[in-house]
Computed example of a mutant assay.
Amino acid sequence: MSEYQYYEFQALDRPLSDEEQEQLRAISSRARITATSFTNTYNWGDLSGNPRRMVERCFDAHLYVTNWGTHRLMFRLPKQTLALPTVKPYCLDHHIEAWTTRTHLLLEMTSEDESGDWVEGADDSLAALIGVRDELATGDLRPLYLAWLSALAARELEDDDEEEYQTCPEPPVPAGLADLTAPQRALADFLRVDADLLAAAAQASPAAPNESARPTKKELAPLIAALPQQEKDGLLLRLVLGPELRLRTDLLHRLRGTTAPATAPGRRSAAHILDAAHTLSTERRQRAEHERATARAQCLTALASEAESAWQRIEAHISTKKTSAYDQAVTLLAELRDAYAHTGRDADFRSRLIRLREDYRRRPGLIHRLDHHGLR
């Protein structure tokens, strides 16, 4: 398999200037560059620019995917929408990093899994993940907690120091971890968040408040009328100076007084959460094994009740003298053996098998298959 790297950058709050697009063209002559995006795929070589610097200067979102298991997502948000002290408790090793420029906060989330399967031609894009940025900007910290869980699992694979996990504190726990939004579910998949680890974390997360999805004119009209004149002027100015993609979101939150899911102080250690996830995983496997065993027992009971019909099908397969039919006969015989054993009739099966082997002792292909499957 050849090398594969996919880079995608999106400008959301403002379009790129002609000068910025020319600067980006100097980084890559093959990239697809528009007023709001930069995308390129590499099967050899690499991007000559620094993705962090590109996001700091021009872009609000960046996705990077490779066929050796790297998934990276980066967002740039105005400082006033997400403060560095809010993000820092969720930063863990090199998997989650945050820093600031004069005007923005930068957040980078990385998942590495060299053993994971990579699907060539997969639809790798920012489309499903871009909504996470708006959620972070409106105070929803669930994406940060998901990234922390991803980093925690990665650290467990890299380091077995149990004492470190005992002293590693849980960051603030957002409400609604058991009821993720569509972008958050996509983020959990992208960062390879273990389902049992998420379920264990969600045990300490209260339910998120319910909010109607689409406001009505009747609801919004009096809210708009009640806005101070100076604030209305400011909103109109932002609209005229647009495009500003966040304007509608900001205004709706201002009008309706809605807030992002609240957070509660993290009270558990990383070790506690990992242990709880392990318990959930063990219980889930045991349930699955029990369900498989129950289903298997039902199948064997049903087969045992129709044993004579099964013997007739076996004889019919053998009578064709075809190798494929021999295989079918032996497979059914092995199932029938288990069915007789399940119902406590091993001796009956043994007696019928001896007669069958005697009847077809001159069929070496069949006898070889019976011996190979332990049907002696």
Score class of each variant (00 low, 15 high):
40 N>F: 02
279 T>M: 13
142 R>Y: 04
360 Y>W: 13
167 T>K: 10
171 P>K: 04
360 Y>E: 01
256 R>E: 09
179 D>V: 07
353 L>W: 07
80 Q>S: 06
26 A>P: 00
146 L>T: 03
225 A>S: 05
31 A>H: 06
319 S>C: 08
116 G>E: 06
143 P>Y: 00
10 Q>R: 12
302 A>R: 15
247 L>K: 01
6 Y>C: 07
371 D>L: 11
348 D>P: 04
367 I>F: 05
221 A>M: 12
157 L>P: 04
244 E>I: 03
44 W>A: 11
169 P>G: 08
363 R>P: 00
322 K>N: 15
162 E>M: 07
213 A>G: 05
134 D>P: 00
46 D>R: 15
103 T>H: 10
61 A>C: 14
288 A>E: 14
117 D>M: 12
276 A>M: 03
360 Y>L: 00
251 L>C: 08
110 T>V: 12
228 P>Y: 14
361 R>G: 01
152 L>G: 01
1 M>P: 10
224 I>S: 10
342 H>M: 01
2 S>T: 11
282 T>Q: 15
64 Y>F: 13
20 E>W: 08
239 L>S: 13
347 A>R: 11
75 F>T: 02
362 R>Y: 07
263 T>N: 13
372 H>D: 10
150 S>C: 09
88 K>Y: 12
269 S>V: 06
106 L>Y: 08
23 Q>H: 12
182 A>E: 11
194 D>R: 09
296 R>T: 09
170 E>F: 00
84 L>D: 01
291 E>T: 11
373 H>S: 06
174 P>W: 13
60 D>E: 04
349 F>K: 00
316 A>D: 04
138 T>N: 08
186 A>T: 00
125 S>F: 00
217 K>I: 11
21 Q>F: 03
271 A>P: 10
51 P>M: 03
150 S>R: 13
122 A>V: 00
